[in-house]
Design a protein around this nucleic acid. Structure first.
Lengths: 97, 97
DNA sequence: AAAACATTTCGATATTACTAGAAATATATT
DNA sequence: AATATATTTCTAGTAATATCGAAATGTTTT
């Protein structure tokens, strides 16, 4: 993971609405949550939500899977783990080093 | 820490230049690095760098301390730890829960 | 107090992001 | 095939951010 990729992930998490969406998806686990449910729960207009979702997808933080006419969004755990690893490995001072 | 505060921290880390500055400061430890050194190392104009630094300060991610005419920038470790804790506590699925 | 050094603020421009209504697309049901 | 449902794309207005040269500010040295 390059610095650019990590920065991109942080950037997309750096918006209150998107961070809420992301948290909601993490709580949901594997199956994820449909766009419509997110819309209802967060009270965001269709088009606005859709843009935020595609931002998160473009950063590789979440993915979408269609089931019938419903699109489920779910977390890309590998990416989340990479971001956490970055903060710990690159950023955290280990006094014993 | 509110969601807004966490989002703000992510937002400011979500820029390649600022992320490089932050990484550099973490590596530097307690004492930190002067603005001038950052400027030389990263090859960024004074004013541009100054803006990025104040963004990081505004998010509470770093602080500045003057020594003579040199300003040292250093990491606010509490904030960094909060951000890491957020990702782990709010976001990471613990299958044993 | 003048000159040198370090950093920030000002000012101006260019790019990118946010928001959301309306129209379009895709899928399912009747 | 027509209608209903779910979601995205189009379009457009507004706001925020990025960039950096030049001028201003604060600090030290002579």
């Amino acid at each position: 993971m390059t610095t650019e990729e990590i920065a991109k992930a942080f950037k997309e998490l750096g918006h209150a609405t998107r961070l809420l969406v992301f948290k909601r998806l993490v709580k949901a686990g594997e199956r994820g949550v449909s766009v419509g449910t997110l819309k209802d729960e967060l009270g965001i207009p269709n088009s606005t939500l859709s843009h935020h979702i595609s931002s998160l997808v473009s950063a590789g933080l979440i993915k979408q899977q269609r089931e019938g006419r419903v699109l489920y969004c779910s977390v890309e755990y590998d990416k989340l783990l990479s971001v956490i690893a970055f903060l710990q490995d690159e950023c955290c001072i280990d006094e014993t080093k």
